[in-house]
Amino acid sequence: MPEPTGVIHDIGYQRYTGPRLGRRQVFGALYLHGLRTAFGLGRSAKAKIFPWLVVGIVTVVAAGLTAVRSQIGQVVMTYAQFADAMSWLVIFFVAVAAPELVSRDLRSGVLPLYFSRPLPRADYPLAKLLALATALWLLLGAPQLVMFLGAAFTTDDGLRGVWNELLDLLPGLLYAGLWAVVFASIGLLVASLTGKRAFAAGGIVAVFLMTTPIVGTLSIMPSRAVNELAFLASPSTLVNGVGTWALGDLLVGEGGGGLPIGDFGPVYAGAAVLLVATCVVLLLARYRKVATR
């Protein structure tokens, strides 16, 4: 081995006797790393383009809505409606971020380096899932905060107006959380099945978009119950259905236009919980298998 030249002090190898952090801090490090990766931070400039393009679009839309509202004094879009309107952007964001989070590690073979460390097997997929869900929630929630600030500063009713605005914002943020959790768990599960990023991205878009025709077909079947349950078939309409049931006019608005789900609201909520739980279980099972390879 060539000896290093020009080194004045070679102090040799130092043993490490300092503290070693526990499971929670390691989980936190992995989570933060995942969150940064979702937005392309600490990555090449190319990896930053798409996430920040999406962030730019949602922020501009939110700023525009705020401006319009302050000018004409009318609510163009409620907080929850904003989350709905931006859902197609979320799909593309998931299709880029989820493969970036898991497919890349599968392909490069770096997983043995994680699983040969004290990290418990389930922590890796859970940290990634939490990171992706947080990223999606920030993507939908931060613009809502922009809208809220705009509304709060232009309100005519003083503190009372701000309080009312806040009561509108909180359900909107919760609804954004639902979008984030459902989309993150499906997206990450699909992405964890393949090491090829393009396949993973295609698969995610396919799951979200190809299920829409099924909804369309079911909703014109000659049965009212089938029609009202049709929206269970696609993740986007499923979330929408839960929102229609739980948020009511915060989402639907005065003119109506929510999904015709009849009295099946609780079914939609149950289905959403079941869907997320199934995805998480399958994701953990997937990584139990991957870890031993």
């Binding site: 490490y16 952090l21 526990g22 390691v26 490090a29 790393h33 380096l113 994680y114 460390r117 004290p118």
Partner: peptide
Amino acid sequence: ELVTHLGRISGLPRTV
């Protein structure tokens, strides 16, 4: 970056 990240996964504090 990679070795630092993996060091953190092994439980080392960030600067260490």
